[in-house]
Design a protein around this nucleic acid. Sequence first.
DNA 1: ATAGGGTTAG
Length: 634
Amino acid sequence: MYCECGFLSSARLVFEKLMKRDVVSWNTMIRGYVKHRVFDEALRMIREMQYKLVKPSESTMISILKLLADVGNKELTKPMFAYVIKNSNMNHLGANLTTTLIEMHAKSGSVAVARSLFDRLNEKNVYAYTAMVAGYIRCNAVEEGVRLFGQMIEDGILPNEVTLVSLIAECGTDEALDLGKQLHGYVIRNGFVMTLPLATSLLDMYGKCCEISSARTIFDKMERRDIMTWTVLISAYTRGNCIEKAIDLLVLMRESSIKPNQVTMVSLVSFCAESGALDLGKWIHAYIDKQRINRDIVLNTALIDMYAKCGDITTAYRLFEEATNRDICMWNCMILGFGMHGFGEKALELFTKMENLQIKPNEITFIGLLSACSHAGLVKEGKRVFEKMKNKYGLLPKIEHYGCMVDLLGRAGLLHEAYDIVQTMPMKPNVVVWGALLAACKVHKDPDLGELASLKLLEIDPESCGHNVLISNIYATEKRWKNVVSVRKAMKNRGMKKEPGISCIEVNGAVHEFTTGIQAHAQFGEIDDMLREMLCKLEAAGYKPDTSVVLLNIEEKEREKSLKYHSEKIAMAFGLINTAPSTPIRIVKNLRVCDDCHTATKLLSKIYKRTIIVRDRIRFHHFSEGSCSCGDYW
DNA sequence: ATAGGGTTAG
């Protein structure tokens, strides 16, 4: 009972007091740890059990392995596998045990090990086949999966409703969609009844592959719908940025007297996080509490993430402190949140707390910490964290972590140290790594290293338009128009377009989106007047347009004009017009803030006495009283 | 023995 409810220390106490322990008591305790993701302790107990010569029965092993397969944990599969091998005769592994091992390996990414076990099976039943096919789809070896599915049918082993559902559930990726459609066809051809699980898995698959209309067709045809059906469709809409449709469904669902639960709400909250819609996020938060929807650990994490990503780090931290239950994901969200806001010290403090509580950080934790150090210019601390990751926690830095290090050193102006990392890292640097170096070269004006990085980028990924823009940007800063033109031409020939700059601003709960340039907005006349006024006041305050950030080789006057119509400035003008004096203005943009807008926004915060909070692609800028929280360091 | 929905980075 204690294990099931997650009161593991109480369970352990009872366990320790037992005079006699049999296989069942060990099994229960270990399953408790696995179920609640305390893998270290589970492994320790398995070893202790072995030491005490308690020999687990096959069914004990199966039940533990099954749990492991469900949580898809990679760290434990290896030692568990070793343990099973050690305790049984490899040549006489029972079919049931083997099948469970296949499932465990297939679900946790070791598809090759799963296959070798699969090939040793004499009698391959539907469970083994399904586990294997599902494993292939999960690790993106879809062709192999299709082949095996065909072989299974040839062998005369036919899938049933349950196995079809578990396969379809794996098909929510672009790569697997074709297979998913084939399975859908199989379901129809063979006259399976569209039960709720079957329909839900199909709905979810189409939703995840952005084929919402197919999902909708299935949904509309259904006679009965339960909480999962609604939830899946709502997630599909939020994923496709159709928030109005999602909210409509929330209302409709209430009307058909099905009450949303915490799972339903998570996808709505995470939409707000993604799009920076704070007002909507607050509304949903209030809705959750008003409807007395239970806030479990995942929903709390989503809310924390939402507040952090919408600029309200104080509320995010309050929710974090109030949470009675925290997992690694929640800690990571909070660390990432602090980093995003430039509070590097706070992120590090949180990490210290984690360490004191003996909570094991994972690789995402370190991405958060390294990028937090990077945004705050904490070079020494960042280096220490990187060492700790390797030495204390035995985590092998992945390419992302090297990318963070290059960013950390590059941003701080230590270009050659950054380049050292690029040259000595144990894997081939990718576009992210070269891109970080290139961006650093742009900020710290090292055209030679910048050019080298540019060439590498073009070599690895000639199609990436973002990097081409950055390259032409570097040339433009040096007024090397010839090079700018040739990069631009090459882009045009390949049909590449610069990702358009988009700025969003939420006013009275509605999100308004602006792109660059003059646009067909009902209020555009007013906005244009406002922009003119802003420019006048800016110039009076000593602002000069920084035309070096404009990429095009055009006349100076035109360049100024193109600056004036940067989406960010338009959104700001719109905010100034439509919000009450002295309320903060919040803007979310898809690209990084440009130098000119950054300077202008600082001044504007002083001129109009407004706090202006801008979330760019990677971090927050809090502008107030003429300065920015990033300390001009981004 | 086998089934459907949600959170962090890139």
